[in-house]
Computed example of a mutant assay.
Amino acid sequence: MIPLSVLDLAPVSEGSGVREAMAATALLARAAEEAGYARFWIAEHHGMDGISGGATAVVLAHVGHATSTIRIGAGGIMLPNHNPFVIAEQFGTLDALFPGRVDLGLGRAPGADGRLMNALRKDIGRAAEFFPQDVAELRAYFSADPALPLKPTPGLGAEVELWVLGSSLFGAQLAAAMGLPYAFASHFAPDHLDEALKLYRARFQPSPALEKPHVMVAMNVFTAETDRDARTLASSQEQMFVAIRSGLTPRVQPPVPDYRDSLPPTAQGLLAHVGQASAVGSPETVREAVGRFIERTGADELILSGATFEPAARRHSLRLTMEALRG
């Protein structure tokens, strides 16, 4: 079996709060480490009631102290929101605290709507145009380029593993040109998956960081004792998908049995579309679905997403998933 990793949003459940979400994320990371997962990534999102991972580097420090061996990282930092020098300092600090364990996935999207531009006091759309230069600047900091006019401390020469994230062809081309590993966000944007992976592999240029193409693809995975139990478990995240597409940002709601049956055709179609990169069911069902997805994509790694209302339910799902795929 190829390496499996975990993507977490530090979700906030209805009736709970950010403090509880942070505690649940630490427990989830510890459970992932104990189960044998390779990486634990936090995604940057802003202005959403149900997601509390906006201060991504701070959350990763929390996760790092809760674990000891699993790699921790950003999946990802939305670089147009930030100054590369500051990100180098933040992730250089993480590398000093947790040496040899830190990943930095970089994305070009803002991770929020247009209101974020005003809140951050910057033109995010224009900043996105400089994404390739900003990635190159970060790589120069971590490689300790002697020509740098200003050197970040911490950050200079830090052993941070850089990734390019994407859900379109742009990220695939950039990762290939820079010789970096590539992670595709197929768990919520599956449209360009096959084309992006083909492009990345065809155009890949070896670099000091990576000799050959390396791809990680994202899936939504919910594993329970039965198919019906898993579908019910997944309904909390499905409610979030439907709400977000409607312009809402609610906290994670309790699961609803047969949730899809209650939806209009447009919402059912949305979930079926997103579900192209999903495995929901009993251990046997999940094993077969994941196997088909790996065969389709040729992925070198998988990263698993899947918010649940009860944090313990996701920890159980991750354990069952690992047992099923190892078996």
Rank of each mutant, 00 (worst) to 15 (best):
H192T: 11
G36E: 04
P283F: 09
A144T: 15
A23P: 02
L197G: 00
E34G: 04
G47E: 01
V215C: 08
R292D: 13
P132V: 09
T93G: 12
L320N: 00
A31Q: 01
E288T: 12
V221F: 03
S16H: 06
L270N: 11
G166V: 09
A61K: 05
P152R: 11
Y200Q: 03
T285C: 06
L27N: 05
M178R: 10
Q173K: 14
P190K: 05
T223D: 02
P311Y: 02
T56W: 00
A234E: 13
A224E: 03
L263E: 10
V102P: 03
V242A: 03
F204L: 00
D258K: 15
R203M: 05
H82N: 03
G36K: 11
L150P: 06
P206I: 04
L148N: 14
V135H: 03
F184L: 01
T153V: 09
L94Q: 04
A185F: 08
R251I: 11
R139A: 03
P213S: 06
S13I: 10
R296Y: 14
P311S: 04
A185R: 01
A202Q: 15
M240T: 02
P99W: 03
G327S: 10
G100P: 02
T297I: 08
E310Y: 06
V59W: 11
I70Q: 01
R326K: 14
K212C: 03
E211K: 08
R287L: 05
V86C: 11
W41A: 01
G64N: 06
G75W: 07
S186L: 06
S168W: 02
G155T: 01
D49L: 10
G64D: 03
D49E: 14
F309A: 12
V217Y: 05
Q268A: 13
R39A: 06
E89P: 00
P206T: 00
L156H: 13
A29N: 10
I72D: 12
V12C: 08
T232Y: 07
A32Q: 02
G166K: 05
A136C: 06
M216E: 00
G53R: 00
S282G: 10
T223R: 02
Q239F: 09
F40S: 02
G247A: 15
G298F: 14
D227T: 04
I72C: 12
G64C: 05
Q237P: 12
I70N: 01
A21W: 00
L320V: 01
L302F: 04
D227S: 01
H65D: 13
L169G: 11
Q237R: 14
K151S: 12
